[in-house]
């Protein structure tokens, strides 16, 4: 009998592995892989559903149109601004929240339960809450302001409210990811630090922070990618009015409002490239480990 490079058992294991993964892989391929490819193809075509006969391959014309459009750059700027500001606030608030969840002496279960409400609540629902709260007359928050102001109708305050809604909803998620990091910091290290004479703040900065750096990077990566796709909050709060469109809102309007598949696809591809760039920077430059995604 000749020796076999792969025995039955090994071959069976491989086959089983493939069979078990096949359904999930197939669904992901059909529903995500193929549309991605398709949108790349569409982005090189003139394809407007209002003029379906006027379909043609036009190379990079769509890209040129989008990249020279001030609407696109305005949306891109708004999206980036919202992403950076809200993630920065979330990081600070999330860290405080994580420490409270980790350290609190009383009602730990209660705290961990209530923070899941913002996480779990439907974004659109929360957004309506904020919209009515800031609507003059109706809103309890708007009533705290000068009577003549309508914060959602002015660009700076509208963007601030969008950021508020975003921060309120996603800080708990950030906090949970950071909490995961905090729980693996050995208690002994902190005790050793305090015996070595470090204050609480010093041991947080010098010991805890460096140790949870991986968790911070992961949390930042997830949240930045997520914030860059911001859609629901803006749709409800301003629907892109007062120049508050995000790239997702703009793309959606080109598709459903404008029925322009070529331009919509081009924007889709550009958003995807931006997201890929962010992920690339985090993973390759900052050395973020790529763990199980949770969002």
């Amino acid at each position: 009998m000749s020796a076999r490079p792969i025995s039955d058992g090994k071959a069976a294991e491989r086959r089983l592995g493939w069979w078990l993964c096949a359904p999930a892989a197939l669904v992901m391929l059909i529903v995500a892989g193929w549309p991605i490819l398709y949108s790349v193809l569409l982005s090189f075509q003139r394809f407007d559903l209002r003029f379906p006969d006027d379909k043609a391959w036009i190379g990079f014309d769509n890209y040129q149109a989008v990249l020279s459009s001030e609407y696109w750059w305005n949306a891109f700027g708004v999206t980036t601004f919202i992403m950076i500001v809200s993630v920065a606030i979330e990081l600070v608030l999330g860290m405080i929240l994580a420490i409270i969840m980790h350290r609190t002496l009383v009602g730990r279960g209660l705290v961990r339960t209530v923070v899941l409400i913002p996480y779990g609540i439907v974004t659109v629902v929360a957004a309506y809450g904020w919209r009515y709260a800031w609507t003059p007359g109706t809103g309890w928050l708007a009533n705290l302001l000068d009577e003549s102001t309508a914060p959602l109708t002015e660009r700076p305050s509208a963007i601030a409210i969008i950021i508020l809604a975003e921060v309120w909803k996603t800080t708990p998620f950030m906090a949970l990811l950071l909490l995961a990091g905090l729980t693996v910091v050995p208690e002994e290290l902190l005790r050793a630090a305090s015996i070595d004479g470090a204050s609480k703040w010093q041991s947080f900065v010098r010991i805890t922070l460096p140790l949870i750096r991986p968790a911070i990077l992961v949390a930042l990566l997830f949240r930045m990618l997520d914030a860059f796709r911001i859609y629901d909050n803006i749709y409800v709060l301003t629907n892109g009015g007062q120049d508050t469109s995000s790239v997702s809102i703009l793309t959606y309007h080109n598709l459903i409002g404008g029925l322009n598949l070529g331009i919509g696809s081009t924007m889709s591809v550009l958003i995807f490239l931006t997201v890929a760039l962010i992920a690339f920077i985090f993973i390759k430059v900052l050395g973020t480990s790529t763990p199980g995604s949770d969002k």
């Binding site: 949108s39 569409l42 990618l225 859609y231 598949l261 696809s265 889709s268 958003i271 997201v275 992920a279």
Partner: peptide, 15 residues
């Protein structure tokens, strides 16, 4: 998981 859903909306709408 990291993919912007809006990038899928256009092609999925058409498909």
């Amino acid at each position: 998981a990291m993919f912007p859903q809006v990038s899928l909306v256009t092609p999925l709408f058409e498909i």
